[in-house]
């Protein structure tokens, strides 16, 4: 029974991480799946969200300095909103500069911004405490829940060990619920908006910009909206990550985890499809976490196992592109209500 609870607790941890990835995928799905914007700097928006949230609602990042911002210890919700706004503002400026240019320039600009952000986070002590990262980021409602759990356990000393084990994990269950509620809200909003006239314009832009332009739509403005909204969702994911991990540093936002994985998830799940985005996140994160157990039987060193797992994910991506380019689910034929016959 105790083993079962152990596995269950692991699954909760797994689902929280996969859920945060799913939020990122929904953000990318707005940009790429709906509008065809090629953003390969997801990690940058993810990082901006995480750090903004941590600075707003956490303790000071490191040794105090006259330039230090943050450490305001504001409520978590303020951090979340700050994360969304900060990512949105950065996306707005990148979009302003690059969305009028050809699509490859957007790609290069986003990958560049993500690298610059990572360099800043890695090197600026006053802002991010450099490579030591920001520690002790508070998790929302952590203290009351933990206090409740421990007083409950004190009041019931006769409980069997596995039950104690189960109840001790209450906070993770709470966080999972939080992530899933946010994911659900985003999913619902995303599905609603793609079926709206607004979403129809986005899809027209993706298929043929010229058509959208001649039908009188301000293509640039729509692309900018989509790009900024997608980035805001990514910032939200950053906040969710920071308050769960409690510790962030620049290495969490390297292009492999922060950008490449999200693309693989969306493409394998099915881009243009919110269900596909969520499914892809859980499937790929499942494969990633599952292959971790390969290390033992294959007798590989840690870095070798890591490399092998990335190769597995990369090969999966290439196979999907070759054999099932639409992904597991593919895009649903969506008819917006205005068009329905």
């Amino acid at each position: 029974m105790d083993t079962f609870i152990g596995i269950l607790n692991y699954l909760v941890f797994f689902a929280i991480t996969a859920g945060i990835y799913a939020v990122l995928c929904l953000g990318l799905n707005i940009q790429w799946g709906y509008t065809g914007l090629f953003n390969i700097g997801i990690a940058g928006f993810f990082a901006v969200g995480a750090y903004t949230s941590a600075l707003l609602s956490g303790p000071p990042p490191g040794p105090l300095d006259w330039r230090t911002v943050g450490g305001f210890q504001l409520p978590w919700v303020v951090g979340l909103l700050g994360a969304i706004i900060a990512s949105g503002i950065i996306a707005f400026f990148i979009g302003l500069l690059t969305l009028r240019l050809k699509e490859d320039y957007l790609a290069i600009a986003t990958i560049g911004i993500a690298e610059v952000i990572r360099l800043i986070l890695k090197n600026e002590g006053w802002l991010s405490n450099t490579v030591w990262g920001i520690k002790h980021i508070p998790s929302p409602l952590h203290q009351p829940i933990e206090a409740g759990v421990s007083s409950f356990l004190k009041g019931h000393p006769q409980l069997s060990p596995w039950l104690v084990h189960f109840i001790s994990n209450a906070y993770n269950w709470f966080y999972l619920a939080l992530v899933l509620v946010i994911l659900g809200l985003l999913y619902w909003t995303s599905e609603r908006s793609i079926r709206s006239p607004w979403g129809r314009v986005l899809r027209t832009i993706r298929e043929d910009e010229a058509v959208a332009a001649v039908s009188g739509k301000n293509v640039f403005s729509f692309k900018l909206q989509s790009f900024v909204l997608g980035a805001m969702v990514m910032g939200m994911a950053g906040s969710l990550y920071a308050h769960y991990a409690k510790f962030i540093d620049a290495s969490s936002f390297e292009p492999l985890y922060g950008t490449f994985f999200i693309w693989v998830m969306l493409i394998i799940g099915g881009s243009g499809n919110s269900k596909g985005a969520v499914l892809g996140a859980f499937v790929i994160w499942g494969i990633w976490a599952g292959t971790e157990f390969l290390t033992g039987p294959l007798a590989l060193s840690g870095t070798q196992a890591g490399a092998l797992r990335v190769i597995v994910v990369g090969v999966l991506l290439e196979l999907t592109l070759l054999l099932r380019p639409q992904g597991i689910l593919g895009e649903e034929k969506i008819v917006s209500r205005m068009l329905k016959k």
Binding site: L256, F260, L317, L321
Partner: peptide, 10 residues
């Protein structure tokens, strides 16, 4: 391009 990035990671 996506395929190429994937290949680069591989």
């Amino acid at each position: 391009l996506i395929a190429a990035v994937g290949m680069a990671f591989c």
